[in-house]
Design a protein around this nucleic acid. Sequence first.
DNA 1: AGACAAGCCTGTACGC
DNA 2: TGCGTACAGGCTTGTC
Length: 283
Amino acid sequence: MLAGVTDRVPELPEVETVRRGLVGALVGRTVTAVEVSGPRTVRRQDPAEFARRLEGRRVVGVSRRGKYLLVGCCGGTLVIHLRMTGSLRICDPGADRSRHTRAVLALDDGRELRFVDPRTFGELFFVLSEETLLDDVIGRLGPDAAGDSVDAGLLGGLVARRHTTLKALLLDQAMIAGVGNIYADEICFAAALRPDRRTDSLGPDDLARLAAALRAVINRAVEARGTSLGDGSYRDLDGAPGAFQSEHAVYGRAGEPCLVCGTAIVGGRVAGRSTHFCPNCQR
DNA sequence: AGACAAGCCTGTACGC
DNA sequence: TGCGTACAGGCTTGTC
């Protein structure tokens, strides 16, 4: 398996693991100072305005919708999206700073929250309670992949609306929020469905298996604290890796034997994304 | 040296 | 015409 930047992308289980860490680190804390470095990380608003809005706010809760982290503060919400290479770290001010540190939030307990993002795809912005921006962003998302609402009935509604490949459907955040490339492949395998299956060819049995697979894969990956492959890959708030990579059945295993039947896993492209599946188990 | 990986957005082209 | 969908490009940089 390649060990590199391709393996670090946080999806729902990784973002949820970060969220749980942030609850302990941030709730009840007040942001005492904000430093933004680099022009791209805060791009929906002026970085100085962002800092002004955030400074002095107390954090009251941390939630998540799909891959968006929502840090609830008195009077507004700090929105964080890690995109491909973003990561958050809680540390002491004296700790060495990565050269890719894009923002630092000083906290009233003497620690700081750092946003590190080599490729600067990730973003931060602060939405005041009276603004609609949060609804604009979050309102586009489909139901959360970790929620109870994703069942065969809901999936039936989605495939009736969206005639495309199964992989494209799973990756579409407006359909189901939180699934990225790794878990899309793993969900398809667990459902015994090819990623390139047309959604309009899926019958009730297929949808039932798909719903069960989606829940099983996402829940198990959250339990395992997400996927970390390679040295530069995803880490949690304290720098610890996840463990779900050892349970990958297909992602990154092109050419290796299927864990169920031994057939070589096929690698290719579906919906413009690298895709892995077992041509025997998945139909 | 250059292709590639990724999430998300935008622009454009297509088929019905 | 218009809608849903497909696809390519842009953004970025470490790795192969």
